[in-house]
Write a protein that binds this DNA or RNA. Structure first.
Lengths: 126, 126
DNA sequence: TCGAACCCTCACATTGGTGTGAAGGTCAAC
DNA sequence: GTTGACCTTCACACCAATGTGAGGGTTCGA
């Protein structure tokens, strides 16, 4: 069985506390297999998955929203078109707009900070 | 005295609970004047300021960080170059990188959602 | 067979942003 | 001069994300 790491390894590889991995599972963001003795078992795909979750959390999205949008982000579409309820589509559109607003806000402020640093740093490094 | 609105008006114009305006003040993000009777008095500039704060908060930055970067974002530079301590510059650089990462994460996921919606929505509206 | 290093669940604590309400001061209008 | 719509501070409560640790099982190597 090549594809099964336990929570400790996933924790190290994603730089995420075990506690959080269990929490994400509890929140329905990831669904780990279990080995015979009850240990969680993760395959490679969870590494990216967790990174994605952390990125979104860090960007200010709550788990409730992440849970809703995650299924739409799978590379090989596992959620087919008929699965999408109208409510879900409208949630997605709302979230899309909010993310767009966030991006713009962050970009504006990022640029302002960059500009400030540029002005304040008189070409230090060679 | 043309330029003094009270907390209620600022609250309405920024769509922000009074409670939060007081909280931002307590956190050192805004500094309101006081009229003779103790009421807070805000001028026009606070409208943009509060919007900026809310945007950053919504994007996941904690008040502690916002407090540090806000002074650098003033249009007419009120913070001059010598004011910047090395620690502050390094905080700014760190924050700049984090914001960049956030932007990229949000853009990726935003694009993925947009793509999903595009695929799932069979050209509905005229 | 013991110890170390994992894993499990459960549960309480903390932090930051926010909601809400009490107890009271100011001020304009009637 | 009382009412109503503001404002003040203070304080308790909530939720989500996270920390921490107790109490206990599994596995493996010395």
């Amino acid at each position: 069985m090549a594809g099964g790491m336990r929570i400790g390894e996933l924790s190290e590889r994603t730089n995420t506390p075990r506690r959080m991995l269990r929490y994400y599972e509890e929140q329905g963001l990831i669904a780990a297999e279990r080995t015979a003795n009850g240990y969680r078992s993760y395959d490679e795909r969870f590494v990216d998955r967790v990174a994605q979750i952390r990125g979104l959390l860090d960007a200010g999205l709550p788990t409730r929203i992440i849970r809703q949008i995650l299924p739409c982000l799978d590379k090989p579409r596992t959620i087919h078109f008929p699965d999408a309820t109208p409510e879900m589509l409208s949630t997605l559109e709302t979230e899309l707009a909010r993310m767009q607003a966030r991006v713009e806000c962050l970009q504006r402020n990022r640029d302002a900070i960059a500009e400030y640093l540029e002005a304040v740093r008189p070409r230090a490094e060679a």
